[in-house]
Simulated scan of single mutants.
Amino acid sequence: MSCVILVRYGEIGLKGKNRIYFERMLMDNIRRSLGDLKGIKVSREHGRLYVEHEEDAERVIERLKKVFGIVSVSPARVVPLDMEAIKEGALDEVKEFLKDRGTFKVETKRANKKFPYKSIEINSIVGAHILKNTEDLKVDVNAPLFTVNIEIRENNAYIYSTSYPAPGGLPVGTTGKGGLLISGGIDSPVAGWLAMKRGVEITGIHFYSFPFTSERSKEKVVELCRVLAGYGGPIRLFVVPFTRIQSEIKKNCPEKFYVTIMRRMMFRIAEKICLKEGCTVLFTGENLGQVASQTLESIAVIENVVNIPVLRPLITMDKSEIIEKAKEIGTYDISIQPYEDCCTIFVPKHPATKPKLEEVEKAEEKILGFENLVEEAVEKAESMSITPK
């Protein structure tokens, strides 16, 4: 008897002729996530993936729980398609995890219809064997403390009693590439995580205004990307020098439009980086009505400067929901570190919440040669590859 990790996927199973593409991408992402561990072998068999390994199972499971496309994983015993072997494997499972007291049931999925026993027969035979060879155990088919799961597959039977949830979604890379405006706050990392959950390979774009913002603020963003990379693999991060542009905005534009024009500049730069990197869409952490730049009027005026789609995964979420998700995925404690990003400097006392496009464009014209400033920022952007911890 050997042990493997049984991997279940959800939405992928609904795919048609291109299902194999999603399965192979998921297998590749699993191999990448486990690449530095010993004896990793990933295989596929009729709606299930299996991970063989020579490591501590908990270490492997912790990584698999972060791979998008997986809905749950279970450490499983592998036994031959033989009733005696199945009986003994199930008994071993009970003795290891349930010990000697409590209630249990046996639940069988017979994917291999050639196996001579039906599911209900397997449940009965295996359950009787467990009762005969243990003390103080009782069968409870309605609310058991412990369930012995048996899957009868093409070549082997798999026995397990524990399942660990994973994020679900689609394998990263299956739906394309997208840029992510990442500020260092709570929202944008969550937006990036949600984009990755839908199969997007993200490229981070961060605006850095030294000396108004410290080196530590940049390191904070790198750490956030490192957390996200733990879910979807290495992330390309562009750190864009933004000091000169912000200074020109402050010097030449009406105060009430500082934030609006700053965001328009960010979008222009981000679009150029996206097109350069093969990203077809831009993701942001914007949330409707949260701040002045996130009213419907502001969003429309800001987005007006780009041609690529701008997607906002958090647009209808409450702040409490975003914070809860940030805590769940492990970015919250980093995001709340007290290092300001460029969005928190030069903030006007009374920002425009319903800016008019004509007025904003006229205000922008006061920044002489702003197109050159945009090109300069793109050219001087620092690029780095961020890997998981």
Results as ranks from 00 to 15, higher is better:
4 V>Y: 03
5 I>A: 03
11 E>I: 00
15 K>D: 01
20 I>K: 14
21 Y>W: 11
31 R>N: 15
33 S>E: 13
36 D>H: 14
38 K>Q: 13
41 K>H: 12
43 S>N: 09
51 V>H: 06
55 E>M: 09
60 V>T: 07
60 V>H: 08
61 I>R: 13
75 P>W: 01
79 V>L: 10
92 D>H: 02
96 E>Y: 04
101 R>A: 07
106 V>L: 12
123 N>Y: 00
125 I>E: 14
132 K>E: 15
134 T>S: 15
149 N>W: 09
154 E>T: 12
156 N>K: 14
162 T>M: 10
162 T>C: 01
166 A>C: 12
171 P>I: 09
183 S>A: 02
183 S>D: 02
188 S>F: 02
203 T>A: 12
210 F>N: 03
217 S>E: 12
243 T>G: 12
250 K>I: 09
257 F>A: 11
259 V>G: 04
260 T>V: 15
263 R>V: 00
266 M>K: 01
268 R>N: 04
273 I>V: 07
274 C>P: 04
299 I>F: 12
305 V>W: 01
317 M>R: 04
321 E>G: 11
323 I>H: 05
325 K>H: 11
330 G>W: 10
341 D>I: 03
341 D>M: 04
344 T>Y: 02
355 P>K: 01
356 K>T: 06
363 A>T: 01
366 K>W: 00
378 V>R: 09
378 V>E: 08
379 E>T: 11
379 E>A: 15
